[in-house]
Write a protein that binds this DNA or RNA. Structure first.
Lengths: 226, 226
DNA sequence: AAATAGATTTAGGCAACCCTAATTCTGGTC
DNA sequence: GACCAGAATTAGGGTTGCCTAAATCTATTT
């Protein structure tokens, strides 16, 4: 039952990761979506998708969309584990910050061995989340994905704990870090303007006004819900 | 004076490293030598060599051999630095042994950024040699290469310090490590059989008989010479 | 000086991936 | 029910980097 798969190329690994990410929402990934994410022409995606379907990594319904097969998902989750362990390691031991680490991990994830990843994981104490609060799949591909509430939807008056930051954009990440808005931080929502207006929060760092976009990518654990 | 070079591909990096290594002996590298080292067909090497010459990284005299230009040497030394810092880091912090580390470093060296290498170097305290005793080029490409004496040529009766092990073959490296024959170890030559016969050495670990091949790849610092 | 072994190069191909331009399909609209 | 915009696919190319087979060159031997 061991996967007899020949090693995947960098390109293939990138496609699988992208399709995994786009399928998160439940519906199959579209050609153009994939193309945008990988910064390729849609025609190139069609070609690769065809090859990967033949290899049994994808399920492709022409003109409809692509989904990962279980072999594809397994490979994608391995890449996600690599990426998140790498990010965690670089931040913990090599002075990277969460806004600079993504790029480095994106290159390294194609070059590391399983052995290296497991040693890094061990050195980190087998973490379950990365510096952004994203869950790290176990070596067997299992992953516990908790459901959090966007800060933009936390009722006024409630105190919550920041758990996860859903962006890789360096400028936003830097802004969050500068103001103590990192996983683990406690914040209280003190006000919110209507019609997609800003949310006001109280942090250990003082009060801060967050626009709807930023408040929407800060995911929080509410007291009762967990 | 900054190198305006576009990023090199993995293949190109491998060629430059190979040619650097083969040119160490002074004479230009031959097509077949390069092909053997990289496990490619000689015809493939001819093709790549032509492209790299046009890019100004190599000096190729058809039917004679190849040498690195100064741009080529600079790039090659950068790869050597990457490789040796990686090996040092993996051994120091991630429990690799010197017989397993080469392969991992060979893949990683194409994926790491300069920034990562410099952070690893810093974490290591800017080492000047790697776990095998090979000198590590400085970021500017300068490298101090000391001249050592092969154990096979150390006169009987002399005590020397092991400094460098010139092989990447895992089985030999494992044998050396098992018997304390690692850089820094002190050994005394107690006997040597003539006509390429074995050398007998006394180590902290006891006495040991080393055939000509093994004794030839253990490089030693002699007392006076250094 | 001719022969020849071995190294090197040329010729002709192939696979992976990417691109642009042209075509075809799908899901609404009017 | 025909039409249209946008999505997806097909057609036709290009590059990189590898291979095998067939020349060709070099250097050494006879």
């Amino acid at each position: 039952m061991a996967p007899p798969t020949q090693p995947l190329t960098r390109s293939v690994e990138d496609y699988l990761k992208a399709i995994y990410q786009l399928s998160q929402g439940g519906s199959p990934a579209g050609t153009t979506e994939i193309a945008n994410l990988l910064e390729l022409a849609p025609a190139s995606v069609t070609g690769m998708v065809k090859r990967l379907s033949e290899q049994g990594l994808l399920e492709h319904v022409p003109y409809k969309g692509v989904e990962l097969t279980s072999a594809g998902r397994r490979a994608a989750l391995k890449m996600v584990r690599r990426h998140r362990i790498l990010e965690s390691y670089l931040v913990a031991f090599l002075d990277y910050t969460w806004d600079t680490v993504h790029e480095e991990a994106d290159r390294l994830e194609h070059a590391v061995s399983d052995r290296l990843i497991e040693r890094m994981a061990l050195a980190l104490g087998n973490p379950s989340v990365d510096p952004h609060g994203d869950p790290i799949p176990a070596p067997d591909g299992s992953m516990v994905e908790l459901v959090y509430t966007p800060l933009s939807e936390v009722p006024v008056g409630e105190s919550v704990e920041l758990r996860r930051v859903e962006t890789r954009q360096a400028d936003r990440l830097r802004y969050f870090a500068e103001h103590g808005l990192v996983p683990g931080a406690s914040v209280t929502v003190t006000a919110r303007q209507p019609f997609g207006g800003p949310t006001t929060v109280q942090t250990g760092d003082g009060d801060r006004l967050l626009g709807a976009e930023l408040a929407g990518i800060l995911l929080c654990a509410r007291a009762g819900a967990r």
